[in-house]
């Protein structure tokens, strides 16, 4: 009896150990690949990173080429994308979670929004080209680009906001109702503040996805030589991933270096955004 029990507990310990090792190697593999990639970019691109790289326009000469127009294009585009997708995405999530109940139509819509999150980005590029560039004749403008990207990442904002709203405990809504709160007051004062960290996480995730998107922008025709800063939503533009994409296939090794430097800048911006997201999350979750 005793021996058997001892044997069993030994087997359990070995299993636990094996599982631990499996998890550990999974982490090492994924982080390792990332580390190799980052180091490679760093070695190649760090030399080209300089103030003049950030403040010069693209050029035919790699030594003079910079990303000023791309940075401004990206800032313009991200601001407009956020402006479109945050209010619409969050309102949609509120509507779906708080107002539609469990009707068949609502369930159908919810499933399809989740499906939209999996549609390849090139398809959104087609849509943007047909609707914004051609039908609405916004041309190859910042506006067309950001509307396209807003559509692309809207499902992410909606789904993550829905999830954040759904986990607010019933008891809190009840507390608000019992104090004489209306539905809207309950959403505004209880549900949204409680789900705020989750919603912010979703928004930042969506914007981080949008900032690196290349294919839909190429589809709508943003792959051109731009040596100026956009002066409005209808201005032509370039953006960081496009500028990088533009440099990579060129034969001169110098352009490969500035491309790597561009990647570093892009990564820096994404890390910065995620850093902000975790600060917001931590600050609010403690409360």
């Amino acid at each position: 009896m005793m021996d058997q029990a001892k044997g069993q507990s030994r087997a359990r310990k070995i299993k636990a150990r094996l599982f631990y090792l499996a998890c550990l190697s999974a982490i090492i593999i994924s982080l390792g690949a990332l580390a190799v990639l980052l180091t490679d970019m760093f070695i190649r691109g760090f030399g080209s990173l300089s103030l003049s790289f950030l403040t010069s326009f693209p050029s035919r000469f790699p030594a003079k080429a910079g990303i000023k127009s791309a940075i401004f294009g990206t800032i313009w585009m991200m601001s407009l994308t956020a402006l479109f997708c945050i209010p619409i995405g969050i309102s949609t999530a509120i509507f779906l979670e708080e107002y539609t109940g469990n009707s068949r139509l609502a369930a159908f819509i919810k499933i399809n929004i989740s499906n939209l999150a999996g549609v390849p980005s090139i398809v959104y590029g087609f849509l943007g080209l047909a609707v914004f560039v051609r039908a609405l004749s916004f041309n190859r403008s910042v506006l067309s680009g950001s509307l396209t990207l807003a559509l692309l990442v809207m499902p992410i904002v909606i789904v993550s906001s829905q999830e954040a709203i759904r986990v607010v405990p019933r008891a809190l809504r009840e507390a608000s109702y019992a104090l004489g709160g209306t539905r809207w007051q309950t959403i505004r004062r209880v549900v949204l503040p409680s789900s705020f960290p989750g919603i912010v996480t979703g928004v930042i995730l969506a914007l981080s996805r949008a900032i690196g998107e290349t294919a839909p922008l190429i589809m709508i025709g943003a792959l051109t030589f731009i040596a100026f800063v956009p002066d409005g939503p209808f201005s032509e533009f370039t953006a960081l991933p496009i500028q990088i994409f533009n440099w990579v296939p060129r034969p001169q090794a110098g352009f490969h270096q500035v491309a790597a430097a561009g990647v570093l800048v892009l990564l820096g911006i994404i890390f910065f955004m995620n850093g902000i997201a975790s600060i917001i999350r931590n600050r609010f979750e403690r409360h």
């Binding site: 507390a175 104090l179 004489g180 004062r189 209880v190 409680s194 609010f284």
Partner: peptide
């Protein structure tokens, strides 16, 4: 608003 309630499980607003 006229009939107040204290719930079985405490439910203060956490935020």
């Amino acid at each position: 608003r006229r009939i107040g309630m204290v719930f079985q499980k405490p439910n203060p607003f956490p935020t």
